[in-house]
């Protein structure tokens, strides 16, 4: 049997929901790794623009950390989207090489002699290296497809595509069990840490489900609601995989790609909200202010990272109103 087949067939009989839960939890980890990567970009930018005094070592270890963190993302992606693993690792290796070249070429550049010491700051090799590194991370003027950010977007797209492909074993598992369908709304409801062990005996209702973000999302949606309205009407059935402070929401409608991931625990600084939607979706009418939005060939990404759980909960209410209201 080929390896890819094996990877695909990992889940044997009746473990579809369990695998769905594990993959959803891994996806959350994947997002955490992405977040750390963005934090590294930010750190570099801050040092570059913020009058900091640093040395070459700082830049080298920053580049190193980016490679390390990107590797973790690529690994998660290769588990979440096994078909894409090889392609992603090839791209990763290219970036690893690019990182090594970046460090080497800068190191071989002759140090500015005393006569040049009045040259502009940006000519200092450390600053040059950091500038090059930032360009490599997510420079706006960098040649297409050469930035880490570009690869990140690609990874995201592959992962989401794979998770949501109708043929994925996890997706298929949803239709196996009728008790995961909510009693009150057009929702598949999965308790991430409980349903993996045993499926509920009877149908649950969304309004009783113990997930703080899910409750916020649906706070202003009336009892009969749950079917999306307006331009989101085409959304069809939803899948909500949740735990106390966590929510992973997406739709089964093949024509409308939308995914929302959030952690809003208030206990640690890793709370976040992340949204992916296909290019046809107008995020402006959906999201409250304050989101960072990235458009790409693959679709639209939006996130809000450095926010309190309360802000996330407020955002969820607005998004809920706009989606289902």
């Amino acid at each position: 049997m080929q390896l890819l087949e094996k990877l695909k067939k990992l889940g044997h009989k009746n473990t579809g929901i369990r695998d769905f839960c594990i993959q959803t939890i891994r996806f959350k980890k994947f997002l955490e790794n992405a977040r750390s990567l963005l934090d590294l970009f930010e750190d570099g930018r801050e040092k570059f623009t913020g009058e900091y005094i640093f040395d070459r070592h700082y830049v080298v270890s920053l580049i190193d950390s980016v490679v390390e963190q990107l590797g973790m993302m690529v690994y998660d992606a290769s588990v979440l989207a096994p078909d894409r693993g090889e392609e992603l690792y090839a791209a990763y290796d290219r970036h690893k090489l690019a990182a090594a070249n970046l460090i080497e070429s800068n190191g071989s550049r002759p140090n500015a002699g005393p006569s040049e010491s009045l040259a502009a700051d940006r000519d200092d090799p450390e600053y040059q290296l950091l500038s090059d590194a930032l360009m490599w991370f997510n420079g706006k003027n960098a040649a297409a497809h050469t930035t880490v950010m570009e690869l990140m977007k690609k990874i995201f797209f592959f992962v989401i595509q794979s998770l949501e492909s109708p043929g994925s074993p996890e997706r298929q598992a949803l239709s196996e069990k009728s008790t995961v369908l909510a009693a009150d709304k057009d929702f598949y409801l999965i308790d991430l840490w409980k349903d993996a062990l045993a499926l509920p005996e009877t149908q649950r209702s969304v309004s009783d489900f113990n997930s703080v973000p899910l409750r916020h999302l649906l706070m202003d949606v009336d009892e009969t609601g749950g079917k999306a309205k307006g331009h989101f009407q085409k959304s069809g059935a939803w899948v909500a995989a949740a735990s106390e402070y966590q929510l992973s929401l997406n739709t089964l409608n093949p024509d409308f790609q939308f995914r929302l991931e959030t952690l809003a625990s208030g206990y640690e600084p890793s709370d976040f909200i992340f949204i992916f939607a296909d290019s046809s979706t107008n995020l402006d009418t959906l999201l409250p202010k304050g989101f960072h939005v990235e458009n790409s060939d693959y679709g639209r990404f939006a996130w809000n990272l450095d926010v309190s759980a309360k802000t996330i909960e407020d955002s969820l209410m607005i998004i809920g109103r706009n989606l289902f209201g």
Binding site: E51, I53, P114
Partner: peptide, 12 residues
């Protein structure tokens, strides 16, 4: 000796 430090620190 990295000169960058002196150059940036002096004015600051």
């Amino acid at each position: 000796d990295e000169n960058i430090v002196g150059k940036r620190l002096k004015p600051a």
